[in-house]
Nucleic acid binder design. Structure first.
Lengths: 215, 215
DNA sequence: CGTAGGCCTTACGCAGGCGTTACGCCGGCC
DNA sequence: GGCCGGCGTAACGCCTGCGTAAGGCCTACG
């Protein structure tokens, strides 16, 4: 989840509560920062306060809705009038909750949205004799099953989704690991190595020196 | 199931009875709350009292019928006249039961509706040498009967319905337990263990570390 | 009122995922 | 030709996540 809320105390409280519910939560305190994070990370759901200083919540919403993304939006608003609800939904929000709200209701709605987001996401990726189904979490090569760990699966998914384009190690860190990953770590190289080993021959992952990796 | 009934004592009694029959049951005491839950959760069947304070049962029924959902509706009504029955069915209910009713009849009708709601799936699930009949609550492996508890049966049903895809512990909690399940509980692991033990060998349930389980 | 069984919890041991450090190879550059 | 930066690879250790046992609560039932 990404929680976008300028009131820092509220944001922290919500994040803590959601983490207790088992969710992975990032926080933004303004619209510009939110757009940056949305650009860089993939979220299942964004909890978006409508009244943001600087870049307004509506703008964030529009920006997100305009691009074809599987990310769902839950709008938070101070005034729970019907007009707001209509506005929010026409702007591209997927759900809407007026402040003050019951925390349990927020959780329930986020769960529902996250499930929708997962359902909507998964086309089966196929390249060469590789087949990867994110929904079923299955990867095969030449019909033969591959037992991949989470990181390996994530890296392979990112490479396949890039469709032959080069993906930098930094991109992989942000997509497969999380936003606070140590930029000087060696773990991507090690994961790539293990992945290559499990994929077998002929080799499919090419190193582009100084830039990144591609299928 | 979702039971919508403003008489709290009756609602609790019905829910308890249905849980004894192996169903996962949520409760709403008014129409607005029911609409919220229906918005957020997926149910096979809604048991809907017609006479609700605030948002009337008919309105809930209409709202639900207007959207393309696999959820079935069983209307409960205080007066068992034919007129009511006709009204209910034209509103979009799938079945109808007048109060007072025999509990066994309620169960039978709900079973029938639940089966219809799921009839995208074959009524009897079969994978490998496993056979599972949700209607009769019977499970066999290699022709040999398995004595499963409700939770074990539910978990196995979910895994078989997933058809080899990975099912997360969180999904299992939502499907087999109910909406108030503690996300950090250990009970899924224990149930999986007992299930594996009862299923015998060769082992059929695979653990995908950090993700979930699959058949 | 006692018993049995379903179910959840706590506690603990263990395998494996994952990140680290260290080192060797290779190509480019001054 | 020596230096250096980028990468592959091996080996090690931490610690998460899972399996499993044991105990306790609650409900159903005799």
């Amino acid at each position: 989840m990404l929680v976008v809320e300028d009131e820092e105390v509220l944001a922290a409280a919500v994040a803590r509560g959601l983490r207790r519910e088992g969710m992975a939560v990032d926080i933004s305190h303004d619209g510009a920062d939110a757009l940056g994070k949305l650009d860089v990370n993939r979220y299942d759901v964004v909890v978006l306060d409508r009244d943001l200083p600087g870049v307004h919540g509506d703008q964030v919403c529009r920006a997100l809705a305009s691009q074809a993304t599987p990310t769902r939006i839950l709008m938070l608003t101070a005034s729970g009038t019907v007009d707001d609800r209509v506005d929010g939904l026409t702007l591209g929000a997927d759900d809407y909750l007026g402040k003050p709200f019951a925390f349990s209701e927020l959780v329930a709605r986020l769960r529902a949205l996250a499930r929708r987001s997962r359902d909507a996401l998964p086309p089966v990726l196929e390249r060469h004799d590789l087949r990867l189904d994110p929904a079923r979490r299955e990867a095969t090569r030449g019909g033969h099953f591959l037992r991949l760990t989470r990181k390996e699966f994530g890296v392979l998914e990112a490479l396949m989704a890039a469709d032959g384009a080069v993906v930098s190690a930094e991109d992989l860190l942000e997509r497969v690991w999380d936003e606070h990953a140590d930029p000087f770590t060696n773990t991507v190289r090690v994961t790539i190595m293990n992945l290559r080993r499990k994929l077998g021959r002929p080799p499919l992952i090419e190193t582009v020196v100084g830039v990144g990796y591609r299928l």
